[in-house]
């Protein structure tokens, strides 16, 4: 999994600064994410983790600094162009579609890759049927992968229990075939068994060749899956390095681990 150190990393964030009406939420954040790595991003509430996510994924456009994917700047691209470039994400507060069923969420994630034009869609041509059948088979593979193989594909997504909704959101993101998957607190609100499952899923995602950027509060998850960790506090990076180093860093203990009961 070690990338060639001279090559351009998959994601390079340099000097990222985001301000909301004079309040600086993220200040001069820089880090590299080589392909194949699982990078954790931690920090106390309000440290700016989700803001970094929003800037990378195009939800926030007005930032200073640079976000590059394989050397190409993502500045000025909107959310779906960033998805097209190969970055998918999930949301801290799960955002599923109220009126869509489980399978349709995965099909929606496959949107860009389903080859049917407006006429095919309007007339349900043979090409339409073939495209939909192919898409549905892929959707099944993805649902199986995230552990939703025994869920009714025709059920409303919002009728699923909470933990399965998180998995469905990951399935939707994976359906866009990303190079980089950004997970915003995937284990939030989960018990020990569930977060162990989630850790395993994150590792499996990496096994598929997808790089992962993970924001998480649950230290069990972060410490067990991440290759490297970036620690944010008050919008700035205070430490970055492998989990063992971060765990023992006095600044981190003071800023984060010390302030909460950690495991």
């Amino acid at each position: 999994m070690s990338a060639n150190p001279t090559a351009e990393p998959l994601l390079r964030v340099s000097g990222l600064t985001v301000a909301f009406g004079g309040v600086v939420a993220v200040s001069d954040v820089s880090f590299d994410l080589p392909a194949g790595e699982i990078l954790g991003m931690i920090g106390p509430n309000g440290a700016g983790k989700t803001t970094v996510f929003n800037a990378i994924s195009g939800v926030i456009k007005g930032y200073r600094g640079e976000v590059r994917l394989l050397g190409r700047s993502l500045r000025g691209r909107n959310a779906q162009q960033i998805v097209a470039a190969g970055i998918a994400r999930t949301f801290q507060n799960i955002r599923l579609f109220r009126s869509l069923t489980v399978i349709e969420h995965v099909l929606a994630g496959q949107h860009r890759r389903i080859r049917e034009n407006m006429v095919d869609s309007a007339l349900h041509t043979p090409r339409f049927r073939q495209a939909e059948i192919d898409a549905v088979r892929q959707a099944r593979a993805i649902l199986d992968f995230v552990g939703l193989d025994q869920v009714d594909p025709g059920a409303r997504a919002l009728s699923l229990p909470y933990g399965l909704q998180r998995r469905l959101e990951i399935a939707r993101a994976l359906a866009t075939e990303p190079r980089l998957l950004m997970l915003d607190e995937p284990a939030a609100g989960m018990n020990t068994a569930e977060s162990i499952d989630m850790s395993r899923l994150v590792r499996n995602v990496r096994e598929r060749g997808v790089t992962v950027l993970l924001v998480e509060h649950d230290m069990r998850v972060v410490m067990s899956v991440c290759d490297r960790i970036v620690v944010l506090n008050f919008g700035k990076i205070i430490v970055q390095g492998p989990p063992e180093k971060v765990r023992e860093d006095p600044d981190v203990i003071a800023a984060y681990l010390g302030s909460e009961s950690s495991t």
């Binding site: 939800v59 994400r89 955002r95 009126s99 869509l100 949107h111 049917e116 869609s121 349900h124």
Partner: peptide, 21 residues
């Protein structure tokens, strides 16, 4: 169809629709 799904996504949640590409 794919078009109809895209419309439903936009109707339900534009941010999430953008995230689905």
């Amino acid at each position: 169809s794919r078009v109809g799904r895209a419309w439903s996504c936009i109707k339900d949640d534009e941010v999430a629709a953008g995230a689905a590409g």
